[in-house]
Structure formats: structure tokens, C-alpha cells
């Protein structure tokens, strides 16, 4: 059972009206932006279930755009996110969609970055501002953002996990959960590492410097 903190009860600090439809939505798209790894030029949000039905009334649309802009769920400017995005020349659209047998508050985010690269992230807002990301670029993954999370996209080869865990141990970072997801043997894979300790930029830089088998590294901060 989760060991509840007093700040799980009195918290989070957030912009209303709904922790699942507003705060969770903002966190989902903020995580997506991190995974995109660059400034976003164009983004499409495919809204499923309750997100599709009630997004306007809950400000889910503004929250999603706010996350793409990098705003925190408690940013007072969240409600003006759409205007701010338009000013910055960021295009966005909302499409109601059936994403299949998934949580009622699920969104598929397809982003185009300034380099022209496209990234696709699917995740759900599962209540209380908590999220679950379960697909990146068509690859099955799984993380909640409850812990500082390191996402490493790499080539599935022997020794890859050891190299990363060595860096973490050098910095005294304890791994709480770790999972590896791959398309097929020897191909594109994701390592998802949730830690008890904060992960600093040095760790990210060292991981990035490991060589060409390590395609990209992203850090998702805890709530």
C-alpha cells in the first residue's frame, strides 16, 4: 500500500476545477513535451471518453496546451495557455476520438517539434492529478510520474542496463522501480527508471554521453 504523505491529502497545489481533468491533463502534456525533447510547433490532442465529453467545461483543453508550453499544473497563467500558445505561433487542435479499451480520461498527443520530428504519446489521468503514460511512439511503456522518472530510449543490447544503473549508483540514486520495454530483440527499446532521489542534470548528461546506442534521455519530475 502506498505510504500517503500529508501533502497527498492537503495538496496538490493546482489550478481548478478538477484534479483529474485539469491538473492531471496538464501533467500529461508536460510529460509529453519532455519526451518530445524540444520546442513544439504543432500539436494534436485526441481526446477519449470523459476527456472528449467534458474537456471544455473542465478547462482540459487549456491545461493540455499549458503542459505543452511547459507550465506546471499550479501556474496562474494556465487559463490563458491557449492565447499564449497562439501568440507564440504554436498550432493546436482537439479531436474527439475513440482510443479503445482505455481509462475514461485518456489523451493521445501527437507533437511536431521545431526540428520537424514527430512524437506520439498516449496517457491517462487516473485521479488526484496522478497520471499513467503507456505509449510512446507506438511502443508500450508504463510510468506514473509519481517518482522522478528517467526515460532512456536505447538499442536493445547486452550491458545497456548495467551502464545506466552504474551512473545512478555513482550519484547515490536509489532505483525504486525499473522496467524495460522493447519492440523486438536488438531493436528500439525504452528503459523506464523511477527513483527515490532527485535526478540532476549531470546524470542526464552522462547518460546522453554513453554512445550512439543511447538515442535519447528524458527526465520527468515527480508531482
Amino acid at each position: 500500500m502506498k505510504n500517503y504523505s500529508m501533502f497527498d491529502v492537503i495538496g496538490p497545489r493546482m489550478i481548478g476545477p478538477s484534479s483529474s481533468h485539469t491538473a492531471g491533463a496538464a501533467r500529461l502534456s508536460k510529460a509529453a513535451r519532455k519526451i518530445g525533447g524540444e520546442e513544439i510547433k504543432q500539436v494534436s490532442f485526441y481526446l477519449h471518453g470523459s476527456f472528449a465529453k467534458t474537456y471544455k467545461g473542465h478547462g482540459t483543453d487549456r491545461a493540455l496546451v499549458a503542459g505543452i508550453l511547459g507550465m506546471e499544473p499550479n501556474d496562474e497563467n494556465l487559463r490563458y495557455a491557449m492565447e499564449i500558445a497562439l501568440e507564440k505561433g504554436i498550432e493546436f487542435e482537439f479531436i474527439e476520438a475513440d482510443l479503445g479499451d482505455v481509462h475514461p480520461n485518456t489523451v493521445k498527443i501527437i507533437m511536431k517539434g521545431i526540428s520537424g520530428k514527430t512524437t506520439e504519446v498516449i496517457g491517462s489521468s487516473v485521479g488526484g492529478g496522478n497520471i499513467r503514460v503507456f505509449k510512446i511512439n507506438g511502443l508500450d511503456v508504463e510510468f506514473t510520474g509519481e517518482y522522478p522518472t528517467l526515460l532512456v530510449r536505447h538499442i536493445d543490447k547486452p550491458g545497456a542496463i548495467a551502464k545506466i544503473s552504474l551512473i545512478l549508483s555513482e550519484y547515490g540514486i536509489n532505483i525504486a522501480f525499473m522496467r524495460v520495454f522493447r519492440q523486438s530483440k536488438g531493436k528500439d527499446a525504452f528503459m523506464i527508471i523511477e527513483t527515490d532521489n532527485k535526478i540532476n542534470e549531470e546524470v542526464i548528461d552522462k547518460t546522453k554521453a554513453l554512445g550512439e546506442d543511447f538515442i535519447s534521455v528524458y527526465l520527468i519530475d515527480a508531482l
Partner: peptide
């Protein structure tokens, strides 16, 4: 009312009962 107007609040324990 501030919560419904997309203002900043602290969930206590939720947004709807804040």
C-alpha cells in the same frame, strides 16, 4: 468558485471539496 474559475487552490482533500 475560484476553483471553478480556473484559479489556484490547494486540494483538501480534493479540488471539489477544497
Amino acid at each position: 468558485e475560484v476553483n471553478a474559475a480556473m484559479g489556484q487552490i490547494v486540494a483538501a482533500p480534493t479540488a471539489g471539496s477544497s
